[in-house]
Simulated scan of single mutants.
Amino acid sequence: MSYLILQDALARHTAPPPRPAAAVPAAPPLTLTHVLCGVLLALLAVQIPWADLRGYEFVDRVNYLHYFKYEENLLEYSRFSHWYDYLTNEILWHSAIPYLHKTWDISLPTLFDAIAFFCVFTFVVFLARYQSLLALPLLLNPLLMTFAFDQMRNSLAFSLLLWAFMLPRKLLPAAVLLVLIAPFLHTSSVLFVLLWLCLTLAIRWQQKGWLPYWFYLGGLVFAGAVLSFASGELLHQILSVLGDRRAERVLGNASSGLLYTLFWIALLGVALTQGRRYGTQIICAYAIVILSFVSFNLVFGGYSLRFLAASLPMLIITMLRTDSRIKPFVVGAFGLYACLQWYYWLKVDGL
């Protein structure tokens, strides 16, 4: 008996330590079901007359229609004396749309609907693949509709980044190409790429034991605070120095009120209490940074809505990966919150 006890103790002592949680839980391969769901839901989204339901057009969409039809293209008078001028002027957006419209005779509404289709399709595929098909109803949110149909530069660029994330390693050159293309559509892509790289590095350091988990978690919150500060007054100053055309309207459209932000602050509190295995998944870590960013925007006045819209699939995954004991309350609260969003979006004002 003593021999068996000694043998058992020795086995426990010499057993390899448990493997840390993967930064990205193994996702099932992309299937035809994912693609078909994405196509069907994206087709449905572009067929719905959102402007008629709301009673007015999407502001950015109308501005782009007028710009590409009647105004002088920004590239005609912009100076490209530095390498970053190609980024700040988003050269690919201002050259590709006119080229497709004039050379290939594709109407501007068709091009814009194609971008919206691609965005909705990408979000559906991402959520279905990394969570489940049952999560797709949670995407029915005005944040996504505004992002896909109005904030087209951002939605196109971010969709490319999501595909870069989803592509298998054997298609790494294609993923790198998508990452390189995205910033020339929308400069915020640089921020998302850098954030993703930093999170990957931080997760590896934490899993190797180089960072205590409390320090790692505090770093995620601090990163959100820095992003909030940087996208508020600091961004205004940087754009002014660079002579960027958007400097004058950065702060005016940036902040979100406490009532609108309250749910996301509560979700941040829930996410911070979920433990190491949860917090070191890269999707959840990314969501914690974005939720911290949104929370600190109440102080620094940075952008909230567009970051929330771009991050909606990751935020939904973060909700659905919470502890099973509180998940029903989180999802229920989000459902109620989404109903209020729809009321505000359809009856009161656009997001």
Results as ranks from 00 to 15, higher is better:
10 L>A: 10
15 A>Q: 14
19 R>V: 08
20 P>Q: 00
28 P>A: 07
29 P>F: 01
31 T>F: 04
46 V>F: 08
48 I>N: 08
49 P>A: 11
51 A>L: 00
51 A>C: 05
52 D>V: 10
61 R>N: 12
66 H>Q: 14
68 F>E: 11
71 E>T: 12
74 L>I: 12
75 L>Q: 05
77 Y>C: 07
82 H>F: 01
83 W>S: 04
99 Y>V: 15
100 L>F: 12
101 H>K: 11
104 W>M: 13
105 D>S: 15
108 L>V: 06
132 S>V: 03
136 L>W: 07
141 N>T: 12
147 F>H: 13
148 A>N: 03
152 M>F: 06
159 S>C: 05
171 L>W: 13
171 L>Q: 04
172 L>P: 00
173 P>Q: 00
174 A>V: 04
175 A>T: 09
179 V>Y: 06
180 L>I: 09
181 I>Y: 00
182 A>W: 02
189 S>H: 07
189 S>V: 08
192 F>R: 06
193 V>Q: 11
197 L>E: 04
198 C>R: 00
199 L>G: 01
204 R>M: 01
205 W>P: 03
207 Q>P: 06
208 K>H: 10
211 L>R: 04
215 F>R: 07
217 L>Y: 03
218 G>K: 10
218 G>C: 07
218 G>P: 07
222 F>S: 12
224 G>P: 01
227 L>S: 07
230 A>C: 02
231 S>I: 01
234 L>W: 11
236 H>D: 09
239 L>S: 02
240 S>G: 09
244 D>W: 08
246 R>W: 10
247 A>M: 06
248 E>Q: 14
251 L>V: 14
254 A>M: 08
255 S>M: 10
255 S>Q: 11
256 S>D: 11
257 G>W: 04
264 W>V: 09
265 I>Y: 07
266 A>W: 14
273 T>L: 15
274 Q>D: 11
276 R>N: 12
277 R>P: 01
283 I>W: 08
283 I>D: 09
284 C>I: 08
286 Y>N: 06
294 V>L: 14
296 F>H: 07
302 G>R: 03
306 R>Y: 04
311 S>W: 08
313 P>M: 05
317 I>G: 11
322 T>D: 11
335 G>Q: 10
340 L>H: 13
344 Y>K: 14
350 G>W: 02
350 G>D: 06
